[in-house]
Computed example of a mutant assay.
Amino acid sequence: MATQLKLPTRVNRDSDSFEKYQTYIHDMFMNLCITNGPIEAINSKIKVWKQTTYSYRNDSHFRDRILLMTRLYDR
């Protein structure tokens, strides 16, 4: 008679999450050309601008600068 091993709840939760998202994980490895690099680059630039431009009085001016510098304005 085999003894059943009792796993911690965290392991059970992780395995449930893996089963839930298994198709997405598989697709991620099959489509290696998809990357979040451009978004990460924009986030990095925004963090640097936040550190150097702490003197903006108006938040909308800072937002406008971000949109201009990242070319996200609608034309």
Rank of each mutant, 00 (worst) to 15 (best):
Y21R: 11
Y24H: 07
I25K: 09
L68E: 07
Q4I: 07
R57E: 09
R63T: 09
S44R: 15
Y56V: 04
I34F: 14
R10V: 08
R65D: 07
D64M: 07
E40D: 08
N12G: 02
E40S: 10
R10E: 14
P38N: 06
Y21M: 09
S15T: 07
L5A: 06
L32D: 13
E40T: 12
N43A: 15
N12L: 07
L72D: 01
D27G: 03
N12Q: 13
N58V: 00
D16T: 11
S44A: 15
H61R: 01
F62M: 04
A2M: 11
I39E: 07
M1Y: 06
T70A: 03
R63L: 06
S17P: 04
H26M: 08
S44T: 13
S44I: 08
C33F: 15
T70S: 08
F62P: 02
F18S: 12
I66G: 00
S55R: 06
I46K: 01
D74Y: 05
R57F: 14
R65L: 15
T3K: 05
I66E: 00
S15C: 08
L67K: 09
K47Y: 08
D74G: 01
M1P: 11
K50G: 12
N36L: 13
D64S: 06
R63Q: 05
G37Q: 12
N31W: 14
F18T: 10
I66W: 00
F18N: 09
R75Y: 03
T52D: 05
D27C: 13
N43W: 15
F62A: 05
I46Q: 01
Y73M: 08
R75Q: 03
M30A: 14
T70E: 01
T9C: 02
Y56L: 09
L32Y: 12
I66L: 11
T52P: 00
M69K: 06
H61L: 00
L72F: 04
D74R: 07
N12P: 00
W49T: 05
S44K: 15
R75T: 03
N58S: 00
T70G: 00
N58F: 00
I42M: 15
M28R: 02
Y56G: 01
D14P: 02
H61G: 00
G37R: 14
Y21H: 08
Y73S: 05
Y24T: 02
L5H: 10
A41D: 14
R71N: 06
D64G: 03
Q22M: 13
K50V: 11
D74I: 10
Y73D: 09
I39T: 09
